[in-house]
């Protein structure tokens, strides 16, 4: 049973000067699931996310990833363990081309990243894989365009390609649909589904139809605490959730 849990928190708490942004959260993410973290504004989703990705240190509680305690690990280390995050604002390297963006992620495993005396040509071997990844998100035609010049939806696609370059076991997506046009939402949702094939995904997302469509399990946060957890069907029929989050106006 416990083998099925890839990420687990217990008593996870973040206090900002007397304010509990996240309070005693116990989260269990099953291997292979798409798990969504939802909740009204100020529920502590983003704080929770930053705790999991180690960009914030918890006040109390523990985080275990694949049975290892990562409560005190630093963000670069957990990325090396296969737990990779995305960002709410599209996180690309704007002055690098699309290809270079993906390549820089592939490059780390090569182990030559401190070699300032070697030519860039030593990275040519990565181009094939980088192009495959760009192709998989529909960016093949943009390989030499600086990422900063790409349209918003394409930046997000590039970010996903870059993340996939690490071949992570688990992805943490911070509002993957934020600020996206309608057409892009469907495309990225498909992409997430495709990517989830042999991975675990935990995402914070506002777009409820996306959550309903993609998620295996959902955790609802309210005022820093877990309000409910279950499938979309269970969650959406939970009176407390309807009261707190969806409001009476929701169908």
């Amino acid at each position: 049973m416990d083998d099925d849990i890839i990420l687990e928190t217990s008593g996870l708490t973040k206090e900002f000067k007397g304010f509990f942004a996240v309070h005693s959260v116990a989260l269990r993410v099953r291997r292979g699931d798409i798990h969504a973290l939802i909740g009204p504004n100020g529920a502590g989703k983003t704080t929770c996310f930053n705790l999991l990705t180690k960009f914030l240190a918890p006040t109390e509680g523990t985080i275990h990833y694949k049975g290892r305690d990562i409560t005190r690990a630093n963000p670069a280390d957990i990325a090396r363990m296969g737990l990779v995050r995305s960002f709410q604002i599209s996180a690309v390297f704007p002055n690098l081309t699309a290809l270079e963006n993906v390549r820089v992620a592939l490059q780390r495993k090569l182990g030559n990243s401190f070699q300032f005396w070697r030519s860039e040509r030593s990275l040519l071997g990565l181009h094939e894989r980088a192009e495959e990844l760009l192709d998989s998100v529909g960016l093949a035609d943009f390989r030499d365009v600086p990422a900063g010049e790409l349209a918003y939806g394409r930046k997000r696609a590039l970010e996903i390609a870059t993340t996939l370059a690490l071949d992570p076991e688990m992805l943490l997506l911070d509002e993957p649909m934020a600020g996206m046009a309608h057409g892009d939402v469907d495309r990225v949702a498909q992409l997430i589904r495709r990517v989830s094939a042999n991975r675990t995904i935990l995402m914070v997302e506002h777009n409820l139809s996306v959550v309903a469509d993609l998620s295996d399990r959902i955790t609802v946060l309210q005022r820093g605490e877990v309000l409910a957890e279950g499938t979309y069907a269970e969650i959406s029929s939970n009176p407390e959730v309807i009261e707190a989050y969806m409001g009476s106006g929701h169908d």
């Binding site: 990705t53 960009f55 963000p75 670069a76 280390d77 990325a79 090396r80 990779v84 995050r85 995305s86 960002f87 996180a91 690309v92 390297f93 704007p94 002055n95 690098l96 270079e100 390549r103 820089v104 992620a105 490059q107 780390r108 090569l110 030559n112 990243s113 401190f114 070699q115 300032f116 005396w117 070697r118 030519s119 860039e120 030593s122 990275l123 870059t162 690490l166």
Partner: peptide, 22 residues
Amino acid sequence: SPFGQVLKAIRDNEQRAISLGY
């Protein structure tokens, strides 16, 4: 160089570079 690539990535977006494991 490979080093320069990482350096430029850090310059452009350090948080992202960290999240890639650097």
